[in-house]
């Protein structure tokens, strides 16, 4: 690969100033499991500087309280999520994603924030972040801004980050009582694959646990970006927990999918899987909500 410089920023300001200096020629490094592989494979010839944000306190912080919700620094590796019992209990879909990204070796390094910034249509973390209502905290030359996570990806590998901006953290609201969530993906093997399709569901049950009062459904690998599917959520909210309800929601996910055929899957297969996975994720999320 081409020669690069490595810089480790200690603060947000320092990171922004490096980005201002190098512009498009700099890339932010958090876990590196995508970026370093891309550099080594010659897919990022334009990169001259790698900016490591793991030493920025705000990027490596992980903090949860039932009142404040979750603060997830952009460079926090996956294992810290699923190894924290309180976080895994509050955000099971996020823990599902964190435990499915690569093998153990990848989870030691890969960050949810990095998975988001990579903006892959098949990313394993993004549907969970969308379903759980995450907000992006972004820093740049013009200061800080926030963005709902479903607006972050704008195309395969392309995000809403402006020139010289970077993702500092994600914030997830506290789940209401009787909430549950689930992320599922389909891969041909049982490990180490890119999703053919995936789905995340977050929902809340009424106190009697027989009706859904709130829901968000997101699907991935079936469109240029991961999709929030309000039609699927609408099919669930207020409806009784019947087969027909679940099928209507799953069918809405299928209808929202607009996939392509490539080596990993076909259009028909992906549409079908969007339905199957959404249905299964709803069932699991309901079960988790009942047990919460």
């Amino acid at each position: 690969m081409q020669a690069i410089a490595y810089q480790s920023a200690k603060s947000i300001d320092e990171a922004v100033s490096v980005l201002r200096q190098w512009g498009e020629r700099a890339r932010v490094l958090s876990g590196g499991t995508d970026l370093i592989a891309q550099l080594r494979e010659g897919r990022r010839h334009d990169v001259e500087v790698v900016l490591d944000i793991k030493s920025i306190p705000e990027a490596r912080e992980l903090r949860y309280s039932p009142g404040q919700g979750l603060y997830l620094g952009a460079a926090v590796p996956c294992y810290r999520i699923y190894e924290d019992a309180a976080i895994a209990r509050a955000y099971p879909a996020l823990a599902d994603s964190a435990a499915l990204i690569g093998g153990i070796q990848i989870q030691s390094r890969a960050a949810i924030g990095g998975n988001l910034c990579n903006a892959s249509p098949a990313a394993d973390a993004i549907p969970s972040l969308i379903a759980l209502g995450a907000t992006c905290e972004i820093a740049g030359p013009n200061g800080r801004r926030t963005l709902p996570v479903e607006q972050f990806c704008i195309g395969p590998g392309r995000s809403a980050l402006e020139q010289n901006e970077f993702l500092v953290a994600l914030r997830l609201p506290s789940p209401a009582a009787q909430s549950g969530s689930c992320f599922l993906r389909f891969i041909p093997r049982n490990e180490m694959d890119i999703a053919v399709a995936n789905a995340a569901v977050a929902l809340t049950l009424n106190p009697a646990k027989d009706r859904i009062t709130a829901a968000r459904v997101a699907i991935g690998a079936v469109a240029p970006t991961p999709l929030l599917v309000p039609e699927a959520a609408a099919a669930l909210i207020g409806a009784p927990l019947t087969e027909a309800t679940l099928e209507r929601a799953a069918e809405a996910a299928r209808a929202a999918a607009r996939p392509i055929t490539d080596m990993r899957g076909s259009i028909a297969q992906r549409r079908h899987l969007a339905r199957v996975l959404t249905r299964r994720a709803i069932e699991s999320a309901i079960q988790r909500a009942k047990e919460s």
């Binding site: 490595y6 480790s8 490094l29 590196g32 499991t33 370093i36 592989a37 080594r40 790698v50 490591d52 793991k54 590796p77 294992y79 690569g102 093998g103 153990i104 070796q105 990848i106 030691s108 390094r109 180490m192």
Partner: peptide, 24 residues
């Protein structure tokens, strides 16, 4: 990062050393 043949333990965590920069 897809085969594990380069595995080392870094600060107590298992990593693929082929996708860690030496500088890190």
């Amino acid at each position: 990062g897809n085969c594990g043949a380069c595995n080392v333990i870094l600060d107590g965590r298992l990593v693929d050393s082929c996708i860690v920069l030496a500088a890190e």
